[in-house]
């Protein structure tokens, strides 16, 4: 939809472009004082897909929340297209899809209503959708293959369909930077394929995508760069070919991970779950 399409060769130009996402020496602590992230540095150039890899509890979701400004940083700064995060959010530059949506699935909204929420940042005070907003919503629903479900109440969707619906909302935001926490978690193979194709298209349109994933089998096919997260910091990041090596993975997973035939990863010695960073019990009744 966007007319101005950035070239797909970011990072090799003569002048250094402003990174799409720049995380510079960021440290985060929970209110209890435990370290949540330690001196994290990560740069993403426009038009690239970066895969964030790490064990449960390494801090992947924490990093996403930190980039979104949901957790206060102790040190360092996060810039999105050279702007502080809250400015970038108001400017509609970032779309964020959390690992699991903590919403009330019986809420009286349809799939189309949910996707329209992605347009609120582009609307006036009363959030009345324009013709263009409706077109973008329809287009986004088409891209994730959910147009036939537009009138469904969201609780009537399967797990994969819910994921697609919320991905469509992120698309409707038309943000330059997409943050997707575990987009392939708990989805069927066809949804997984749809999402992967979509992410490549978005990259080719000049968007920047940061995903976290357990699915190491798809990293090389999908990601231009990877960032390895372990011990609550980024151990290494860079082009997939250079960083996504057995030695590095061994450092991240504390033992060589084995790829099973279906692409999932088995690592010896399962790690404990991450401590809960915040009271997540939102009083569902």
């Amino acid at each position: 939809m966007t007319a101005s399409v950035l070239s797909n060769t970011a990072g090799t130009g003569t002048t250094q472009p402003i990174p799409s996402l720049s995380v510079e020496g960021v440290s985060v602590a929970y209110s209890g004082g435990q370290v949540a992230l330690r001196d994290v540095t990560l740069h993403l150039n426009a038009g690239t897909i970066c895969g964030l890899i790490g064990l449960n509890g390494a801090g992947k979701s924490t990093l996403f929340k930190t980039i979104m400004g949901f957790l206060p940083t102790r040190q360092g700064q996060v810039l999105v297209h050279g702007q502080p995060v809250h400015m970038a959010q108001r400017g509609g530059l970032i779309a964020y899809v959390p690992q699991s949506e903590e919403v009330d699935w019986t809420f009286p909204v349809s799939v189309e209503d949910v996707v329209m929420m992605g347009r609120y940042g582009h609307m006036g005070r009363l959030r009345r959708p324009s013709r263009h907003d409706r077109d973008v919503v329809t287009h986004s629903l088409n891209r994730v293959g959910m147009i036939d479900f537009r009138g469904r109440q969201i609780g009537e969707l399967s797990g994969g369909q819910r994921k697609r619906a919320f991905l469509a909302r992120a698309l409707a935001q038309e943000g330059k930077l997409l943050l997707l926490d575990e987009p392939f978690g708990g989805v069927d193979a066809s949804t997984s394929d749809t999402i992967m194709g979509l992410l490549r298209d978005l990259r080719d349109e000049g968007h920047t995508v940061l995903i976290s994933t357990h699915d190491l089998g798809s990293i090389e096919a999908l990601c231009d760069t990877v960032a390895l997260l372990a011990g609550r910091t980024v151990l290494a990041s860079g082009p997939t070919r250079e960083v996504f090596t057995p030695e590095n993975l061994g450092r991240v997973f504390g033992g060589l991970p084995m790829l099973t035939p279906n692409g999932s990863v088995v690592v010896t010695g399962s790690q404990p779950k991450s401590p809960n960073p915040s009271p997540t019990n939102t009083g569902a009744n």
């Binding site: 979104m68 949901f70 809250h86 959010q89 108001r90 400017g91 509609g92 970032i94 779309a95 964020y96 959390p98 949506e101 903590e102 919403v103 009330d104 809420f107 909204v109 929420m117 992605g118 609120y120 940042g121 909302r169 935001q173």
Partner: peptide, 10 residues
């Protein structure tokens, strides 16, 4: 409905 999304769009 979704305070996280509300925050994420500023």
């Amino acid at each position: 409905f979704d305070p996280t999304h509300a925050r994420s769009i500023g």
